[in-house]
Simulated scan of single mutants.
Amino acid sequence: MKTFCCERCHARVFFENVSCNACEAELGFVPGELAMASFEVDARGGLKRLSKTPRPGLRRCANHEAPVLCNWMVDADDAQPQCVSCRTTQVRPSLATAANRAYWFRIEVAKRQLAYSLLSWGLPLPSKAEDPQHGVAFQFLEQVDPAKTVLTGHDAGLITLNIAEADDARREQVRAQMREPYRTLLGHLRHEIGHYYWDRLIRDTPWLGEFRALFGDERTDYAKALKKHYASPIADWQQRFVSAYASCHPWEDWAECWAHYMHLQDGLETAASWGLQLDHAVPGGMPVRAEVIPHDADDLQRRVVRSWLPVSQFINAMSRSLGGRDSYPFVVPDAVLDKLAFIHRVIGAGVRGEVAMTFGSAREPEAESVECPTP
C-alpha cells in the first residue's frame, strides 16, 4: 500500500480514512487514479474536490454510510451506485446484530485493500453483473445452524467467506487449533481470489503446461487429495511448499502462492512508499532499500532475496520487540521462489496483453447486495 496525503493541507492520511484529521476535509479514494481525493461539502451536501487541476466528477459509493463506511468514490457518470469493490458483494450477512455489522465492516475494509492491489497491477476485477460468466462475486455468510457448516471457498467466480473469520478472537482460536502460523482476514481473501485468477489466467491457456510442471496436475481428484492431506500430511512440505496446506493439491498450492505473492508485493510497496532503507540488513554489507518488484522484471527470485527477505526479517524483529509473534512466519525455499516467479510472469504477460486473459464484455444491470436468508 502506498502512502497518501490530503489534497488540501498535504497532511498524511491513510487508506481507510474518511476525513483528514488535520484540516477536516472529506476524503475519498478514487480507484481510477489510485489516489486519495479531498472534498468540501457544500450547503446542498454536494462534494467539491479540492484539487488544483480539473478532475472528472465523482460521487460517494452507495455504501458510504454505516455499517460499511466505504470511502471509495464512483465516477459521476457511472450508472452503478456502488464502487468497484462494493459491487462485487452479492450476499451480505444479516445486520440484525451489532456483531454482524462490525464483521461486515471489517470484511469490506479487507476487500478494498485486496481490490486496490489488483487494480494497481492492472488486473480486471469485474463483478458478476458486469461479466456474468467470468466475473467475481462475494457472499459473506453467517453460520446459524451447527449442522450446516459455512465453508470459506471459491466456486466458478463465487467466493464464500464465513463471517466468523472477521472475529479476531475466534479466528485466532481456529489458527491455534489448526496449528497454522498465519491466518488473517485479508489472507483468506487473497487465497480465494487466487483460485478465481487461476480460472482467468491459467485454465485453457498456454500457461497450463508450465503450471503443471511447477505445481502438479490439477486434474488429480481434489476431494481425495484433501482427505489424504488431513489424514497424513506431507512431513517435509517445507522443502517445496509455502505452507502445509499448499501441499494438499495443485490448486491449493497455486492459491497459497498467489496469496503469498500479494503478501510480499503489498509489503514491499508499503516499505518502499515509506522510504524504508535498512543500513544494517546484513552485518558489514551494503544498505538495502525496499523496492517494489515491477511486473516487467525477469528476476523475481533475486529481488525477493535481495529486498523482501531483509524487509521481512526487520518486520519480525520489530514484532518481537513489541511483544508479538512474527508477522512473517514463513520460509521460502527455491521451489516456492520458482512458483512465485511464474505467477509474476503470468500477471505481467496478462496485463501487457501478451497472453490473453479470460474475461468477457457482456454487461447486465447491477444487482444490489442482498441479505443472507436465515434458515
Rank of each mutant, 00 (worst) to 15 (best):
L58V: 02
G57I: 03
P67H: 01
R55I: 00
M36Q: 13
L50S: 00
I107G: 05
N71S: 13
A79N: 13
L27H: 06
L27M: 08
Q80R: 14
E16R: 14
R49P: 01
C83M: 11
P93N: 01
N100L: 00
L58F: 12
K111R: 14
R44W: 13
R59Y: 04
S38T: 03
K48Q: 08
Q80T: 11
A76H: 06
L34W: 08
Q80W: 09
Q113I: 14
C23W: 00
C70S: 13
S85V: 10
D42P: 05
F105H: 07
E108H: 09
F15S: 15
H64N: 14
R44Y: 09
Q113K: 12
Q90L: 13
D75A: 10
R55V: 10
P31A: 10
A115K: 13
H64D: 15
F105G: 01
R44P: 02
H64W: 14
P67F: 03
Q82V: 09
G45M: 05
A43K: 09
L95A: 03
P31L: 09
V84E: 11
R92Q: 07
C61F: 11
D77G: 04
G46K: 04
L47G: 06
L58P: 06
G28T: 07
H64M: 02
A35I: 02
Q80M: 11
S38N: 06
C86V: 06
T89Y: 04
S117V: 15
C70G: 08
Y103H: 12
Q80D: 15
T97N: 02
T89L: 15
K48A: 06
